[in-house]
Design a protein around this nucleic acid. Structure first.
Lengths: 208, 208
DNA sequence: CCTACCGATCGGTAGG
DNA sequence: CCTACCGATCGGTAGG
């Protein structure tokens, strides 16, 4: 078990916590390069400048590393959704804010995001369960906005909202697979490209 | 090494070949349920009704199983692309045919397709290399059609074709993650939903 | 935070 | 196509 140090320390970033996060970053790098199963705790330790057993002072098991990383990715996305929904009342603008935040949050955190998808069958069952319910809630909240966009004519209403939602979210969730940090496709252009493709350019003050 | 039986047998399906394909199907099931690394050759053998070492009469290594499955998924998709391109000269109809074949090919072969994505960092380097070049060619050919659709006004031309192509293909490549075989979303509705969302409903005989 | 080490798993081979 | 088995890897613990 990880040996969280004594006391009821508040949100203070202790030395222990800082080192733990350093190890997490190293684990992300190893798992990304080699995959979770092939990547060893020894490699993580080496990258962090520790012996392999020392990792267990900061983490209860190898699987904990992956859980922590996946949960972090989920938290970033979920926070972005809250912010987007709070930013405006107008459905189309809201959907556009959701798309923007989703894309940006993914790109800023592309490592954890990639791990969440590529290694999700190695995520411990307990973590996977809570993350799946979070994800279902996430999709459902967005689906509500999509329905409103259909009502005001900004999205086609000849298709169930669920299909549109999944296609749009799928397109965005997949960006990590082709995104390159070389400036070929600037982030902003990806966002506005998604708006254009989904027909979300004009404001949705329905006049049809 | 796998012991392909004697002779210069043509495309005849020998007993050996039939059993090999049976083992491949079992491997797909095991790898899907457990992941490639966690799934063992023993589990594959049990499911196929063999002892673990017997698998090596049909396959050179555990990794060969994954290679064969991934290559099969790639071939199905590539064939679908050829067919779609051959089906018509008109860019918008061509893009729609591509989307339809991509979606249908993926759904018909959802197991191999899932493995290709979820386990692609376990695919042997040699196989991965050739598949990556095939994939690049695949994307490039579709990008040409997308460019034509932009020129005739069927797709927005304020965004580089590459972004549109990647977003559309990403949306489709991701369907396996939410597709359920319970009829909630009929295949045909997914296809037409994609058309609608991407604004491909009207024929592209440009009159703008 | 380290050295030493254990226990278990698993892919693949030998040899028939 | 099987039994027997090897070699190597690796997560985690002991004990300091």
């Amino acid at each position: 078990m990880s040996q969280k140090p004594t006391g009821d320390a508040p949100a203070v970033t202790t030395d222990w916590e800082l080192k733990r996060q350093h190890i997490l970053r190293c684990a992300a790098e190893v798992f990304l390069r080699r995959g979770y199963e092939r990547g060893t705790t020894k490699e993580v330790a080496q990258l962090a400048g520790l012996s392999q057993p020392s990792i267990y002072h900061y983490v209860g098991s190898k699987a904990d590393l992956l859980s922590a990383l996946a949960e972090h990715a989920g938290r970033v996305l979920s926070d972005g959704l809250d912010e987007a929904i709070a930013s405006t009342d107008e459905p189309v603008d809201r959907l556009k804010a959701i798309i923007r935040n989703f894309i940006m949050g993914q790109i800023e955190n592309i490592g954890a995001w990639t791990l969440y998808w590529e290694e999700h069958h190695s995520i411990p069952a307990a973590t996977a369960l809570t993350m799946n319910t979070s994800k279902a809630r996430f999709v459902h909240r967005i689906d509500d906005v999509v329905k409103q966009c259909q009502q005001c004519g900004a999205l086609p209403d000849d298709t169930p909202s669920g299909i549109l939602t999944e296609i749009m979210l799928g397109a965005i969730a997949n960006i990590y697979r082709w995104y390159r940090n070389d400036g070929r496709y600037p982030d902003e252009q990806i966002v506005t490209g998604a708006y254009s493709l989904f027909g979300l350019t004009k404001v949705g003050t329905s006049d049809e």
